[in-house]
Design a protein around this nucleic acid. Structure first.
Lengths: 216, 216
DNA sequence: GTTTTCATGTAACCCGTTACATGATTCA
DNA sequence: TGAATCATGTAACGGGTTACATGAAAAC
């Protein structure tokens, strides 16, 4: 069984759900989707597509024998689309909001495909992601408190900056959660939300980011 | 030739330069160092250490036959330290400020080891990193301008947030560059620096982040 | 006395990239 | 007509993780 990875598979299925596409196009869209900051190579894309076909989640368009010509290397574009099974599987992937969905890449993909899920799932994932991040912050801030005196200024500055970026991510999630709770209507424009308390600059007393916002 | 990776090797050599250490401790320090947000496994650490020994850049302390006992699995801790060759090689690694040093992980490691280099090298690396990031921003903002109307609100929001994080990184670098130019003394405390112009919110006209600050 | 943490290491696997091979179509 | 881009694919390699094996010392 070759070339499996939940995140890539989810991404592909999610994109194909919006509109059928061939591999080359898929790759461009994929690169745009994932924060745009990574490049995905054909070396992982095409094997993954094949795997999806084997499991009957997608099919390559047989229209005018495109597949056959392509395999015989008289290159015609193969347009892939979801099967019924594929749609079902995608829905399952998108609504599974377990720990696997909180991780960086998985979360990004899930988020980019939010339009294809319901509000509850979105909220669950956002909150899970949030607690995943604050968990991280706690670990870092703690170990930082224990070892900061042994670190030189640059290492320390790197830590501080890292923490700040994650805190920023948490505030972003808070805005999104607010909007999602406000259920679509009366959506806020960014910026009019009072800044969250997270600005303790990696200090020793460390307000111990509460891992869960009280759930409404 | 097994287990090679510039970034891991640099990190290990850099840490050992401060003080000799055994693998277990090294791993903890390593995890702290790299933005703290990644875990490094023994499965990559120990093979890498062996590789470094083979190339005579580090030695395991022979004090009271520690190595022999360890290999005979009567586990004694092996304390590694840099050789003269190792120190030389490390200096070479740290002062090479080419494109390889601008990438995310490489940069983080280089930065964490800044205390072991001179001011010019630090400046070169910071500026290289900066131009690497603005380059990325340009690419993203451009392709965003071309495809934004085809994206749903979530995908768009993900893009926007990604761009914002990178812009923040650029401002951080600007502060560091300023400080570095101020050559150590009169170091600013963060915050009293006028915010940089980067707040164009991924729009179409896109002020085209100039890839190089004029070098003074 | 048993659990945790310290401590070293290997083998199997995973998921990705690079470099290559191949060729059609579009545009200057 | 020649370069760029579209388009599909594979083989070799790379650099990491997980899970395992092994055992000492410390903490409770």
């Amino acid at each position: 069984m070759r070339g499996r990875s939940d995140v890539l598979e989810t991404a592909i299925l999610g994109l194909l759900a919006s509109s059928p596409m061939h591999g080359y196009e898929l790759r461009k869209r994929l690169n745009l989707m994932l924060g745009s900051f990574r490049a995905l190579s054909y070396g992982s894309l095409y094997p993954c597509l094949r795997g999806l076909v084997e499991r009957d989640w997608i099919v390559g368009a047989e229209a005018e024998g495109a597949v056959e010509r392509a395999l015989a290397s008289k290159r015609a574009r193969i347009v892939y689309q979801l099967t019924a099974d594929g749609k079902e599987h995608l829905q399952q992937l998108l609504s599974s909001s377990g720990p696997a969905a909180w991780e960086d890449e998985s979360f990004d993909v899930r988020f980019a495909l939010f339009a294809q899920t319901d509000a509850e799932t979105r909220l669950r994932i956002l909150e899970g992601r949030r607690s995943r991040l604050t968990e991280r912050l706690d670990t870092v801030v703690q170990s930082l408190a224990r070892t900061r005196e042994r670190m030189d200024e640059y290492t320390l500055e790197l830590q501080r900056h890292g923490v700040e970026q994650v805190e920023r991510e948490v505030r972003w999630l808070d805005e999104l959660i607010d909007n999602e709770r406000g259920s679509g209507r009366a959506r806020r424009t960014r910026g009019d939300r009072p800044a969250v308390s997270t600005t303790h600059a990696a200090g020793d007393p460390a307000p111990a980011h509460n891992t869960e916002k009280e759930r409404g």
